[in-house]
Amino acid sequence: MVKNRLVNIMLIILITLTLIGVLATVLYTQVFQETRAEGEPTIDDILKVSVETEEITTNLLSNHIIRTQFVIQLDNDDAVNEFQKRDFQVENIIIQELSDMRESDFRGSEGIVKMQNGIKKRINEIMQSGEVVEVYMNKRMIQ
């Protein structure tokens, strides 16, 4: 009878310790961890995988000159490294896209979004280690 009682007490202690451990784990993961929606990166995360191009000056189709700069957001660190190595190709793509545009294309946001999407698509065609998530026009001056 003593053995059964000792075994019962030992099982109760083990179950209690297990429940305390599970409760502590749940509280730690739910309460003390930073809560953030999955798939929504913070601004710090975006800055880590973003690259700013040099200022580019080129002619537009309408014989105007544009001076512009872009910030390009990529999806991972490997893509950032590849992008930095391909900077001359990226600048060439941007110049080609801008050369096909007129000054009037920059009057509304629709033309700018179309141009950003075109640049994004063409850069993604050459990227191998990742892809462009977003293209942001940082500066724009048309003369």
Rank of each mutant, 00 (worst) to 15 (best):
I13G: 01
M141S: 11
S104M: 14
M1W: 12
L74T: 02
N8H: 03
M141Y: 09
I95M: 06
T16K: 10
E54S: 08
D87E: 15
S50L: 05
R86L: 15
P41W: 11
K48E: 14
E55F: 01
Q73F: 07
I142N: 00
V31P: 04
Q84V: 13
G39F: 08
V26N: 12
D105W: 04
T68Q: 05
V80P: 06
K121R: 13
I65D: 01
V7D: 13
M141T: 07
K48T: 04
G21R: 13
V22Y: 12
A37H: 02
F32L: 15
I9F: 12
R107L: 10
Q33R: 10
R122A: 00
V7S: 06
S109Q: 15
D45K: 03
L61C: 02
E134K: 14
G39Y: 07
F70K: 02
E34V: 15
G130T: 10
D44A: 12
I119E: 03
S129W: 02
I142Q: 00
T58R: 03
N76M: 12
N117C: 02
V80S: 08
R5Y: 12
M1T: 14
M115Q: 06
T58M: 09
G118R: 07
V80L: 14
E131Q: 09
N59R: 11
R5F: 08
I15G: 05
V49M: 00
Q33W: 08
V80F: 09
Q143T: 13
I72A: 05
G108Q: 11
R140E: 01
G21W: 15
V133E: 06
D44N: 11
R5Q: 12
Q96F: 07
K120C: 00
A79H: 00
F83T: 04
E97C: 07
S50E: 12
E38Y: 06
D105E: 08
K120T: 00
K114M: 15
I9R: 11
N8I: 10
E131F: 06
E134Q: 12
K121I: 04
Q116A: 15
Q143V: 13
D100A: 15
E125Q: 14
I12M: 11
I13S: 05
D45N: 07
I93W: 06
D100I: 03
T18M: 08
L47F: 01
G39H: 11
G111W: 14
L11H: 08
K139H: 01
L47E: 13
E55V: 08
L17Y: 09
D77Y: 01
V135E: 00
V90Y: 00
E38Q: 02
D75I: 10
I93K: 01
I15R: 00
V133H: 08
E82D: 09
H64V: 01
V80M: 08
Q116H: 06
T57N: 05
I95E: 11
D75Q: 14
D75S: 03
V22Q: 09
G21T: 13
I12L: 15
I20P: 03
G21L: 14
T18P: 01
M127E: 09
